[in-house]
Design a binder for these strands. Structure first.
Lengths: 345, 345
DNA sequence: TTGTAGGCGTTATCAC
DNA sequence: GTGATAACGCCTACAA
């Protein structure tokens, strides 16, 4: 099966004693071909180990059967799980998935979109990015490249999927409020990306519902290393009055917070309650286990693929855009208790 | 920029008033072209927003500038980190990375290899899989498709990269032995994949060095859910004499073990020591933090890409296969103590 | 039912 | 230096 001896449909046709046109029709079962030649051609193809050249097919059919996907970071488990599920579903439908990391940089996003276009992907799934480049993607979509947004702002005419981050943060905050907390610190890695913004909005809405004023001193929203988050957590704890609960938006925030609290001998939930939006092994298995808001990565990936496939298979029939909102679940574990559970030191 | 109006080199040539051949040469700066026409053509291309069609180029040049990568599970953080780094490096060299999940199934591996071949990938990075299908990959390689193995058995003539799992487990085990442990339980998700086999071998070698007989009752090597691992851990603890330390091979094993111990009120490291091969947030941040053997995912990915690029750019010059062994580092944290640290209950 | 031929968008090999 | 022209491998009218 050396590269040189790669069999083409020409070889198959020759081996079966038919023209290449007939061979093609027999292999693809398109057009009128006698059953006898179908068998003959198929056998010849099998014997030769013929594999149709997807590149040539793409050129001819104007479809690569590839969809591109843009994420900020493929190694982030929240994306990895989604990618995995999306790839699986797309593969069932005969599509491959080409993934690109934007690293949350506008320039890289541009570069990748360009790359995907040159590679003639059939569609594009666009995850969150600092450059909420709605118009650009909308233009692509109108230009004939189906775009599905994922946790990202996009134009009115576009299809997409959102995890309900706002409600997630709302419910988490309300849970803390119900326990009696009023000074709830918020740690977020971003206030500009759609998920971050939505979560902060949900937090604010829950406070407002109780008539508690938003205290900006309690909010820390910027990307930072785990070590820095740890020191942020400590600096928050040194406020007077100190927060009685931490709402961590994302794994890194949770990890940093736990580290910071632990370094300072603060115990959860006795000294302070902790709650996270986005569930991970760490939250599940930490001692104490951390209450979390979670959602199903697999169904997110699957739905994304589904949205894309629908667009792809509808062809030109510009159907109305579909939007999907993925619900979240609150999981109560051991990390939350009423404030003042233990007298302050 | 609608699909219909996608500009081809023909449009560029027309706009610049030259033939398509000249346009091509000007754009690619190949062959003799006057500086004046280069400028004219370039400007025309820019104005039209011309993007060369990578598919047509692939067909013509017989190179897709795509490399395929096979992993058991893209959402496993140990793979995700590697993939991310490999993709980055390959992209710098103008290659895209197409990833496929084998789910550790032979049939899926076959399917994906077939898919990658039809898509005419320029090379293949093959991660571990239950089917250590050395001959098949070797044949592919000889047939002209560069194959780089990753933590996987492969033929003598092939290039590849291995993390030094054997040494990792050896050192971890030796650390426990040095603390005085003699009954060390081993939890592994697999004894058939290359990494699992190597680790078990490293464990065995360390015991042998001390003249301690291998006790199969202490070894549990099969894939299983976290819950099952937890019950495995407990069943191990009910042995008499009970193990005094756990060596966990992989995140899931660690997570299950910690959960099991915790459910039973066993404390680390007072009742039992715990050590993991493969570092994660969970190990770093658990209380107590878990000693671990780690390695650099990024350099693994980068080296894999490097190996591939070298093969790709050497062309036909069948250079001798290169092998790389990635070293590991032992990180001592809080989860290990001498046995009998606290009198048994 | 089957064969022939044109073309998808490029690049490379020729002549000029 | 530049312009035709022939592939690359495949599918699909159109003709037979």
């Amino acid at each position: 099966m050396s590269d040189r001896s790669r069999k083409t449909i020409k070889d198959v046709a020759a081996a079966a004693g038919v023209s290449i046109g007939t061979a093609s029709r027999a292999l693809n079962r398109t057009g009128r071909v006698s059953e006898a030649t179908v068998i003959r051609v198929t056998k010849a193809a099998q014997k030769l180990g013929y594999q149709p050249d997807a590149i040539a097919q793409s050129l001819r059919l104007k479809s690569t059967k590839v969809v591109g996907m843009l994420v900020t970071d493929l190694s982030n488990p929240f994306f990895a799980g989604v990618i995995r599920a999306a790839e699986k579903r797309l593969q069932q439908a005969g599509y491959a998935l080409l993934v690109g990391n934007t690293d949350n940089e506008k320039a890289r996003e541009r570069f990748l979109i360009d790359l995907f276009q040159r590679r003639r992907v059939d569609g594009l799934i666009a995850g969150p990015c600092e450059s909420e480049d709605a118009e650009m993607l909308e233009e692509l979509d109108r230009g004939g490249l189906p775009v599905i947004g994922f946790d990202r702002d996009f134009g009115a005419g576009q299809s997409g999927l959102h995890v309900d981050h706002r409600r997630a943060a709302f419910e988490a905050t309300r849970h803390l409020l119900n326990l009696g907390h009023e000074r709830i610190a918020l740690l977020s890695s971003s206030s500009t990306l759609s998920p971050g913004r939505e979560r902060i909005a949900g937090y604010a809405a829950a406070l407002e519902e109780r008539g508690i004023a938003l205290n900006n001193a309690l909010i820390r929203a910027h990307k930072s290393s785990m070590e820095f988050v740890a020191s942020e957590a400590l600096s928050l704890m040194s406020l007077r009055p100190a927060p009685t609960a931490f709402l961590c938006l994302g794994t890194r925030m949770l990890a940093g917070t736990l580290q910071g609290l632990r370094q300072n001998g603060l115990s959860v939930p006795d000294d302070v309650s902790v709650l996270t939006v986005g569930d991970t092994d760490l939250a599940r298995l930490y001692a104490p286990s951390i209450s979390a808001v979670t959602w199903d990565l697999e169904s997110v990936g699957q739905m994304l693929a589904e949205l894309m496939l629908r667009r792809l298979e509808e062809g030109e029939s510009e159907s109305e855009p579909r939007r999907i909102m993925i619900p979240t679940q609150f999981i109560d574990r051991e990390s939350c208790a009423p404030p003042g559970h233990r007298p302050e030191t």
